[in-house]
Write a protein that binds this DNA or RNA. Structure first.
Lengths: 231, 231
DNA sequence: TCATCGAATGACTGACCAGTCACATTTTCC
DNA sequence: GGAAAATGTGACTGGTCAGTCATTCGATGA
């Protein structure tokens, strides 16, 4: 989505984009599997069924250029995901932040299942990048993070106006909410890959079932770990 | 702490340990700065003021062996941190989980200031490792994560018996609480390194001041994002 | 049919580095 | 003092890979 622009394109140009897409998909899978450092252009080229030199005709900036092109697509998709949930929520008369977040968590889990590669790249490389000594990389990461926060913010603002939220800075809340989605997915992924560890059944099932996982996280973050006063 | 065993050691052995410590400290700084892949044994050796070959006389398993030795010290320290806070909390008549967590967050922030290198290594490499295709690496990460959870668990169990906690699996709670400490510290670190971004003053100050940051996170996680019913 | 030109290619270069091992240096102990 | 053991060392080897560019390929149009 959003790859082809509106103007009618020449066959030449259409083919060029198709080939670029193929290279991006190949890069995604190699970066996810090997991580940035161990991914080789040779292998990306091979999976895309092109010669290594050809990659340089499609991406500026060599290996790093390809990597950031991949990151761009990831963040675009994540922002779309958030924006979608927020738009739905804002469409109703009275924003229900719990429901909105619950939906978002569900969508994020689905996204992970559909495009595991993309998520793995994010986890493997994003945190590393934000401690890089290269300021431009850090800035890139901050900018993307901010995009996600800004996508979620309108919903929180609306909910806040309705008095539905605790009086704490909304930006920090947004960060916390987004961060915990990542955390949940990482946790689920680890459990799924290695289900052999002894752990309580209750804990297991809560994280296995996407629906329950979303409910769990939503409850934890909106209502807190502490017992409700009535109990 | 806990490096020297109880038995009286020969001068030989004491000197050997001192040298090993020096190598570990050098490795810490290089791994933190460059990340695992770009760290070179040459540089570690240089900072420790030894020849590269000497490292092999002190660590089995070459580069990877040194790396895991560093990771071990990190997790040891983190577990000690948690265990300390938990022991304090359990010593009182009635466990106050909020206070305990607040203390723990404060300690974690202090730890980050004292030994930034160690934390950066953890952030840069741990998540990456838990998606490695090498099962033994994943298992290592899980084991260490579990150690931390188990260190926190007794406090939660006690609080739960006192009816202070919501009826949700304690293990999952423990994970969430620990994970969010990491998240907070990463967030603070990014803000500190790049304070130039436009952001609300309220948000900024909450994360700048360790005390406020700890209070913020504790409130969020224990009492939830949602407004209290009375408001 | 052939000339032209943009695109694809992969062998090659230069740089990097983990791990080894033959040799150098220091310590121990008689 | 000196032999023997322990320890330190860094040049070297073998392997990897990003990026380059001279060459090849194939599409287009005359």
């Amino acid at each position: 989505m959003a790859t082809d622009s509106d103007a009618p394109l020449s066959r030449r140009e259409r083919e060029r984009r198709t080939r670029r897409q193929a290279m991006l998909r190949a890069a995604e899978s190699v970066f996810a599997e090997k991580g940035y450092d161990h991914a080789t252009l040779e292998e990306i080229a091979e999976r895309a069924e092109f010669g290594k030199g050809t990659l340089y005709n499609y991406f500026e900036g060599g290996k790093e250029g390809i990597f950031f092109a991949v990151l761009d697509t990831i963040y675009d998709e994540l922002c779309d995901l958030i924006a979608e949930s927020v738009a739905e929520a804002l469409a109703s008369d009275r924003v229900d932040p719990r429901a909105c977040y619950h939906t978002l968590v569900g969508k994020a889990i689905d996204f992970y299942h559909d495009r595991e590669d993309l998520f793995v790249i994010l986890i493997k490389e994003a945190y590393r990048m934000c401690f890089s000594h290269d300021a431009s990389k850090v800035a890139y990461f901050q900018r993307q993070q901010e995009r996600m926060v800004n996508a979620l913010l309108p919903m929180l603002q609306q909910a806040d106006e309705n008095g539905a939220l605790r009086d704490l800075p909304l930006e920090a809340m947004a960060h916390l909410l987004i961060e915990n989605i990542d955390g949940l997915i990482v946790h689920r992924a680890i459990m799924a890959n290695h289900p052999n560890r002894p752990t309580s059944c209750q804990h297991q099932s809560i994280l296995d079932d996407p629906e329950k996982a979303a409910t769990f996280l939503t409850t934890m973050l909106f209502d807190g770990v502490a017992a409700p006063p009535s109990a």
